[in-house]
Design a protein around this nucleic acid. Structure first.
Length: 290
DNA sequence: AGCTAACAGGGCCAATGTAT
DNA sequence: ATACATTGGCCCTGTTAGCT
């Protein structure tokens, strides 16, 4: 591992700005999200930071004014209520606008599962998002800073909770390039309900298309757009869910359950179940009955 | 008996690009 | 928004043999 941490910065910020370094416990590092450093900056003209190859993640939330971020070869403008979430391993440069001075909350954070959050966040085309639920986001940041100014026995789990809130809000603020509201059209809802009801029959994409009077190509595309998975994948999920329920709460044999779930071929049922659940049907039944 | 693993072959579907 | 074409992948089947 080559590690050449590099940072260059002009530390121009106001008197009432805040910068807190923390020393998380061993257990916090292994099981929680934890703060490495956090604060609030009211910048002065000339403020900037440039760094790379730092094993830390970084969230910045613009409270007022204007800032600029350069990351992964692009330059982004940051305005009020916009946040970015980046990995400090990669080169980054951020600075205040010279006229509209940048005011922001920030946190360097880490944790065992943060790379998964970051990976999910990267499905957006930009590291900068406009926060949807801004009052909660702002309040979580404030609580986070307060929490580190007044150490208590439960500071670390509380910090982890607040960081999770921040990360969750970041993920929920991603808008895909297809401009999705959380709204799901009625037809798609109807199709989802139909599948939930008739999963145990041989329902195909063609069948669905005919039933709902849509082109099957269009149907498949739209379904995935709103449900996140293909119609067929959703069907399988319904079948596995039914099977798990029957395995746990009935005494039906595996082959009966397979049949009732809409997968008459037992061999295939077992393979599919194991592929999705990690255990065979019988092992699943036993696990929940001991 | 009932359950599971492994395998191979056939067919259908999801994904994608393109056109209108 | 809808339709068509292509293709690689995986869904499904059927069988067999080994397991509890």
């Amino acid at each position: 591992m080559t590690k050449h941490y590099r940072e260059k910065a002009a530390h121009n910020w106001s008197e009432d700005s805040i910068r807190l370094i923390t020393t998380p416990s061993r257990s916090a590092k292994s099981s929680f999200f934890y703060v490495e450093e956090a604060g609030y900056f009211q910048t002065k003209p000339g403020y900037f930071t440039e760094r790379e190859k730092l094993n830390s993640y970084f969230i910045v939330y613009t409270l007022d004014g204007k800032g600029f971020l350069t990351y992964h070869g692009h330059k982004y403008k940051l305005q009020k209520n916009q946040a970015f979430f980046i990995s400090c391993m990669d080169y980054q440069h951020y600075e205040t606008d010279q006229e509209e001075l940048w005011e922001f909350n920030w946190v360097h954070l880490n944790g065992s599962s943060i790379s998964d959050y970051y990976h999910y966040f990267q499905s957006a085309d930009s590291p900068v998002v406009t926060i949807k639920n801004s009052s909660d986001f702002k309040s979580s940041f404030q609580q986070l800073i307060q929490n580190h100014q007044n150490f208590t026995a439960h500071s670390e789990p509380i910090s982890s909770k607040l960081l999770t809130d921040l990360l969750t809000e970041l993920l929920c603020s991603i808008h895909s390039k297809f401009e999705t509201e959380t709204y799901i059209p009625d037809t798609m809802q109807a199709i989802i309900r139909y599948l939930e009801k008739y999963f145990n029959t041989a329902v195909s994409l063609d069948h669905l298309a005919a039933r709902f009077n849509l082109s099957k190509y269009h149907l498949a595309r739209e379904f995935k757009k709103y449900a996140g998975i293909s119609p067929h994948e959703f069907l399988i999920t319904c079948r596995i869910t039914y099977a798990k329920n029957a395995l746990k709460y009935s005494n039906d044999s595996i082959s009966e359950i397979a049949e009732d779930a809409g997968i008459p071929n037992v061999s295939h049922f077992i393979n599919l179940f194991k592929d999705r659940e990690g255990t065979t049907p019988l092992a699943y039944r036993k696990k929940w009955r001991i």
